[in-house]
Design a protein around this nucleic acid. Structure first.
Lengths: 133, 133
DNA sequence: CCAATGAATCGAAGTCTGTCAATATGATTG
DNA sequence: CAATCATATTGACAGACTTCGATTCATTGG
């Protein structure tokens, strides 16, 4: 958001050869960047990725015991990762009797895919190869 | 960041299964999944994301001192993240005199974007909600 | 009520990560 | 050579992450 340009010369850095100047305004990483990193972080574990993949492929609900069979980690670990996914808003759960059925939250998943896709766009190579700004 | 999850799977779970059965045939997480998770992991930090973004936007080379000005962390931290990006094959460096110029490795970045995009595809909601496989 | 079962939580252990001060390395300049 | 500069590396620290056994909670059935 604070994409200011006219950065004044730092007075105390006026020594010999300056290599270059002004790539981006110093300072804080903006909100979108932090959110994108958080998005990537949720996806940055094979178990969570697989869980999401299974739940997404099944449009409907899947009980934990099935997920447990599909993954090489123990039940508490599954539960842990499911909680992370739930806290990220990507999945939700519904208890039916003894079983807990998980399902993707389609809007949240779509939003995440959109944000991640946008972040990847920003990594596309610069068209002219020249330096803007 | 090194997500290796090295644990073998018993693969013999013959029991009187009750609730349901057979979401996925095997327990081991396959190679593509691990690689996708590793890909996401590299992107799962705002500083690395910003570094990549700056280097990609500049088609050319950027010296570390500029990157240092653009980010709210100290020089050793920048160096640390740049090394991670280099180890991931996404960027490379060329020393010219006193300065070190970093630049993206376009092929590697494109490959990563392709893999990540493919992993996101797998998270697309199933159209009819039916279960495949 | 009691036993059994699926799932969540707790607690602990080990590993990994992010950060920075201090220092090292290597090039350049005077 | 000595001083200076840009960058890399080291070492230490705090905090987060991942995993699993043990336990707890909730629900069902006898």
């Amino acid at each position: 958001m604070t994409r200011t340009l006219g950065r004044p010369q730092p007075a105390e850095r006026r020594r010999g050869t300056r290599c270059c100047e002004g790539v981006a305004p110093r300072g804080a990483l903006d909100e979108a960047l932090e959110r994108a990193a958080a998005d990537f972080d949720v996806l940055a574990h094979p178990v969570r990725l697989r869980l999401l993949e299974i739940l997404a492929r099944r449009g409907g609900e899947v009980c934990v015991c099935d997920l447990e069979h599909a993954l090489p980690v123990k039940q508490p670990t599954i539960s842990h990762h499911l909680r992370l996914l739930r806290q990220a808003g990507l999945v939700d759960t519904a208890r039916k009797g003894l079983f807990a059925y998980y399902y993707v939250e389609p809007a949240a998943l779509a939003a995440l895919r959109a944000r991640v896709g946008q972040a990847l766009e920003a990594l596309a190579a610069a068209p002219g190869g020249g330096s803007e700004r």
